[in-house]
Simulated assay, not measured.
Amino acid sequence: MTALKFNIFGILIMVAGSPGAWRAFYPGTDGKRRPADFIVPADVAQHELCEYLADLFHEEATPRNNTATEIKHA
């Protein structure tokens, strides 16, 4: 199972699962995560997740928070 983390205009979002079975979460500062209030459609491929989330949250963009990126783990 894939677990990916994104910073979408300052909003941290985790997406777990695989294409066709994605589950989105908001990570908490306490290490817990709560289910997101949106779904990722089954036809969104892994390489399309960041763009999909940016499109979904575009109204949250501000001059200070204007990027959508995947947070890569080193």
Rank of each mutant, 00 (worst) to 15 (best):
T2L: 08
E60I: 12
G28T: 14
A42E: 10
P19K: 03
R34L: 10
V15F: 14
T2S: 09
W22D: 01
G31Y: 13
G10K: 00
M14G: 03
D37V: 13
L49E: 02
I71V: 15
L12F: 03
M1G: 09
A74N: 15
Q46E: 13
A3V: 14
F38S: 07
A16E: 15
A68E: 02
P19F: 03
G28K: 12
E59D: 15
R33W: 08
R23G: 06
F25Q: 04
D55Q: 11
G10S: 00
L12D: 04
F9V: 08
L53P: 04
E59G: 09
I11K: 10
V15N: 06
G17D: 05
A24R: 06
V44G: 04
A54M: 10
F25W: 13
L49V: 04
D30E: 09
M1H: 12
G20L: 03
R34C: 09
M14I: 14
H73M: 14
D37K: 12
G10I: 03
N66D: 14
W22F: 08
E70P: 03
T69H: 05
A42P: 00
E70A: 07
P41D: 01
H73Y: 14
K72M: 14
D37T: 13
E70M: 08
A45F: 11
A42G: 04
T67A: 01
G17E: 00
P41S: 01
L4K: 02
T2P: 07
L4N: 00
K32R: 12
A74E: 15
P19I: 03
C50K: 07
E59I: 12
A74H: 15
T67W: 01
L56S: 01
L56M: 07
G10N: 02
C50R: 05
P35R: 13
E70Y: 02
L4Q: 02
A68M: 03
A45C: 09
M14F: 14
L53E: 00
V40S: 02
A24S: 12
F38H: 05
I11V: 15
P35H: 12
A74P: 15
K32L: 12
R64Y: 09
I71S: 07
A21N: 14
E70C: 06
I13K: 00
R33P: 05
A36T: 01
D30K: 12
T29D: 14
A45E: 11
A16R: 15
K32G: 10
V40E: 00
A61N: 06
A21W: 09
N65H: 10
I39H: 13
N65T: 06
H73E: 15
N7V: 07
A68F: 00
E59A: 13
L4Y: 01
R64F: 08
P41C: 01
G20R: 03
E48C: 03
F6P: 02
H73G: 13
E51D: 14
K32E: 15
P63C: 08
Y26Q: 07
T67F: 07
P19S: 02
P41T: 02
I8P: 02
I39W: 12
G28V: 13
Y26A: 07
L53S: 01
E59W: 03
G20W: 02
L56H: 06
V44A: 01
L49I: 00
E70K: 11
V40M: 06
N65K: 11
A42N: 05
A24K: 11
W22K: 01
M14D: 10
R64S: 07
Y52N: 05
M14A: 13
L49M: 00
I11C: 12
I71D: 09
I8C: 02
T62M: 10
H73T: 15
